[in-house]
Design a protein around this nucleic acid. Structure first.
Lengths: 326, 326
DNA sequence: TTGAAAGCGATACCAG
DNA sequence: CTGGTATCGCTTTCAA
């Protein structure tokens, strides 16, 4: 059906093993022959048969990404970046949105060189794989594969400590969403940090949300500001929540940072489209991408990798924060 | 490295061709032998080598889905449903988030049985594929592959006509977002329908938005209601926009449908979490899923399929709409 | 520098 | 019912 190296061989008047070498740019083939073969291959619209190739070479130059819940868009930009980076490294990325177990099996059948699993649940999902696996997500003791994760708890803690240092005593956290273990981590960080700084909880120190969209942040902040009991500083659990918070703050005719300071948890550098340059705490997406792809390449090359790699957040303070005089 | 049928053959004391047959559940193998082989295969953690299999059988039972812009989450639920349905039909779904051209080439190398391309841009991207292709997205005359699409224009038109029939004369559309060709289609439908019904434009008959989130709908509706010039009916371009609209309406102390009627464009049946059961117009996601998967299966089986399949929307009216007395 | 041939893991046919 | 063998398209020795 498709064009094979034999077809090319016939057209070029050489043997098909020469074609193979030429296409792999082997130094064993004369430049002229190479050129001719490559030209003919292009003309014929030749696409190497991945099945045959990986059958013999035991390598597919392909990495499988398991992304069980596409519907939660949190990871979309990360995956896009990873795809790009792997492409630059000459790897093909294939994705599966099946459950982890099935997806891992599929990729094993396809003999991908490595598998990257996005495990938002810290699931106890027991899967096994001959092909090396790297997990991005919550740590889980049963998981025998190297795991890369982001220290969300520490990120929020840093924010609290920063506010404490510049004199804030009344700090609110927006983004309590118990069904989501990532958010849970952040709330825990907030609570622990309050304790460490000997700061008190007050009625609205932790605002729950129904989701992580701009509107959820808007609603929560609105509620917070309308309570008689305003904080001097806000930490918000995600970029979108922050956008909503900013809008609620400006609607209440409060000024940032004079009336209220704000730090946002975020992995993206600085999103445009906000009125104030937000202070950000979190692990930059590029850092996550790099660590993840590097780890994948390492496991492919059978290098030893740490079993648990927890990336530390960075904090970037802008004019959205101000010292409190007292 | 991995377990092969030869390993199983040794353990079972039969020839490897028998193992192959047993694993394929061929009637040519004695039940006992089958049982034994299957058990051993399981014990050894055997995963058939997809490369070898598709090399000889020329079938991979795999469908490649090209989803160039994951970052726009519109298609996430559709893709999830498709994945599910194909899984039920015993097809494996593999996704690529590369650009259309590269992704199609990749899937050609992997000899998938068919490729589904999500083309949100109606792009003139010229790609060619030996493997059959089905496109979901905007029609495009240069595209030689069968295309499935949703009639967004007609959906909005139906909504306008419905409102017209029940006496509304002042109708607003929320969701003008010119960068998005899908939204553009809807706005066009709105304009054409107004003309067909001989209804007049007024200042806020078409509300633009900056995105398609709940908050965008909230802002637009707020603006609309605060203008002195309220409509009696609203059509909203997406489910999320509608949620925002509902909130803005309730904040303005208006009642649905007494003060204002509303129909939402949506492909999902009826989302929970809204105060009023919304009237919906659009093609149900299940219908799209079914058409898309059926078409894929058809092209795989070399059946003739129409070159252009445009799905008609359904309109479902609930108590969010009321006749206007005049 | 090129060609011939072995073999990757599975299926499918034919012979027993 | 079971076993041997050709074959898929390609990479990779080994010889020429």
């Amino acid at each position: 059906m498709g064009v094979t190296i034999k077809d090319i061989a016939k057209h070029a008047g050489v043997s098909y093993s020469t074609v193979s070498k030429a296409l792999l740019n082997s130094p064993l083939v004369k430049e002229d022959t190479k050129k001719k073969v490559v030209t003919i291959a292009k003309e014929l619209g030749y696409q190497p048969n991945a099945a045959a190739r990986s059958l013999v070479s035991k390598k597919s130059n392909t990495i499988g990404v398991v992304w069980p819940n596409v519907e939660r868009p949190v990871h979309a930009s990360l995956i896009t970046k990873i795809n790009k980076r792997l492409d630059d490294l000459n790897y093909t990325t294939l994705m599966s949105i099946n459950n982890i177990c099935d997806a891992v099996n599929t990729f094993n059948r396809f003999q991908v060189d490595a598998i990257l699993v996005f495990d938002g649940e810290g699931a106890t999902n027991y899967f096994s794989s001959k092909v090396p696996v790297v997990v991005y997500g919550l740590k889980n003791d049963e998981n025998p594969y190297p795991i890369v994760d982001v220290n969300r708890k520490f990120a929020i803690k840093s924010a609290v400590h920063y506010f404490h240092e510049i004199g804030h005593k009344k700090i609110s956290y927006i983004g309590d969403l118990p069904v989501d273990s990532f958010q849970l981590e952040k709330v825990t960080g907030f609570k622990e940090a309050l304790a460490e700084c000997q700061l008190k909880h007050f009625e609205h120190s932790i605002l729950s949300v129904e989701g992580l969209n701009q509107h959820d942040g808007y609603l929560a902040t609105k509620k917070l500001l309308e309570s008689g009991d305003k904080p001097t500083a806000i930490i918000s659990g995600s970029n979108d929540l922050s956008k909503g918070a900013l809008r609620a703050i400006s609607e209440s005719n409060l000024k940032i940072p004079e009336d209220i300071s704000i730090i946002s948890y975020d992995n993206l550098p600085q999103k445009e489209g906000v009125s104030v340059p937000l202070s950000i705490v979190g692990v930059p997406l590029d850092k996550i991408t790099e660590k993840l792809t590097d780890t994948l390449i390492d496991v492919i090359n059978q290098k030893e990798v740490e079993r648990s790699i927890i990336l530390s957040p960075e904090i970037k303070i802008t004019e959205s924060c101000e010292r409190v005089q007292n």
